[in-house]
Amino acid sequence: MTERTPGGAGEASPRAMNAKERERFDFAVIAGWIPPGERVLDLGCGDGTLLRYLRETKGVEGYGVEIDHERVLGCIRNGVDVIQIDIERGLSGFEDRSFNHVVISQALQAMHATERILGEMLRVADEAVVSFPNFAYRANRAAIAAGRMPVSEDLPYQWYDTPNVRFFTIADFEALCARLGIEIRERKAFDDAGRAVHDDPNLNGSLAFYRIGLPR
């Protein structure tokens, strides 16, 4: 059976979530993995909405990292602690294990230095939470099969204006983790209506969420 998690909205709607709903959904899934009062680093934090949400719902002590000027300004407006640096160059200013969780929500696909970033994340935090759109989702495969690059709620850009630079799938991400010796502690996948997917997530999952860490 399908379930719409989290939020427990009861009977799941088959309608695809809009951008705002998707954001709230993303936040709620991530927040479910963050214990109260933790120290959290959010990479590619946008205008700080997630950190603000985590602060309000979980009492976390959070810092955001963002490169975009307008989004940094958004963080300052939101009263969120933010550091304007380029994650692609690493996190050298951050001490080892200085955070409980590092989060990268819907941003890993927009960065080039994937391996380096994953390595840095697991250096500065005990555990990382990663969410990304699964490029191998059924609808995306259908678009490609029909000869066009997929455009959807989870991949809302045209090929010529997308900020995404790395197009990868659930299977790709797990293969990379295996190669880098990164332990996958938990995975959640959802279709574009926000229903949890258990059967063949690489085909049926539109959004993927992971808790990853170094083997203990």
């Binding site: 000027h69 940094v72 300004l73 933010v82 550091i83 951050f94 001490e95 200085s98």
Partner: peptide, 21 residues
């Protein structure tokens, strides 16, 4: 400026850092 920012971060102080073009 980043030296100041990261020293504050190490002390878990509230800090916003903007690098302006």
């Amino acid at each position: 400026s980043r030296e100041i920012v990261f020293a504050l971060l190490e002390n878990r102080r509230h800090v916003a850092y903007a690098e302006i073009d």
